[in-house]
Computed example of a mutant assay.
Amino acid sequence: MKGILYYNCNRSGKYQIKGQERKRAIKSQGSCKVGHMCTSQIIVVKNGNDIYQVTYYSTHYGHDTEVQHVRMTKDEREKIASKLAEGVTNSKILDSSRSQFHENSLTRLNLLTRNDINNIKYSFKINTQKTIPHRRASISDLWNDEWEVDENQQILMLKRQGEEHHQLEKDDFCLIFMNCSQQHMLKKFGSIQP
């Protein structure tokens, strides 16, 4: 069987509205389509008997490599999905991707957004809701679990309703936390009152 396949640059062509009327606004970075055909193209010709001839035109015309229009690679998406499956929080993944920025080497991963993470969760069918067995999870439980992993933040005291405490009532709830900068300020300016 003979045939020809054309693979054009994903920036080629004009933005086309699907359907009669657009209900949502266009993305803030605009469409990735440049309004004309880019010269970069791959042409695959199958001559029969599993013989393929590939012609690759690598030069792009009419657009630059703009990071906001670059898609994440399959490997990048899989790495993020594996972190999510391990229970790493969205915030940690975002912080990690943004902290890997080096001068003159901005990548698509440095521009990762919560929406990107949610799309990855959806496409990999990852459910990251935390649950605590035999009890409804409270905000303080989930917060405590997340903060236990982070050495820059400390929960100094967590007293849940129904727990006994020598200074608080049984129905009282108390959460006292501190981050590193607050701890530094307390050590520098705080004093112990008799």
Rank of each mutant, 00 (worst) to 15 (best):
G35F: 03
G35Q: 04
H36W: 14
H36N: 15
M37T: 14
M37C: 12
C38Y: 06
C38W: 01
T39H: 11
S40L: 00
S40A: 10
Q41P: 03
I42K: 10
K46V: 14
Y52E: 07
Y52W: 01
Q53P: 10
Q53H: 15
Q53T: 15
Y57R: 13
S58G: 07
T59P: 11
Y61D: 15
H63I: 04
R71G: 13
M72F: 08
K74I: 08
D75I: 14
D75F: 14
E76C: 05
E76L: 00
R77L: 10
K79N: 12
I80A: 00
I80F: 00
K83C: 05
A85D: 07
G87H: 00
G87C: 02
V88D: 04
S91K: 14
L94N: 02
S96D: 08
S97M: 01
R98H: 04
F101G: 02
H102F: 02
N104F: 11
S105T: 14
T107H: 01
L109F: 04
L109G: 03
L111I: 09
L112Q: 04
T113N: 01
T113E: 07
D116E: 01
I117Y: 07
N118F: 03
N119G: 05
I120D: 00
Y122W: 13
Y122H: 15
I126V: 01
N127M: 07
I132H: 10
R136S: 15
A137S: 14
A137N: 11
I139T: 09
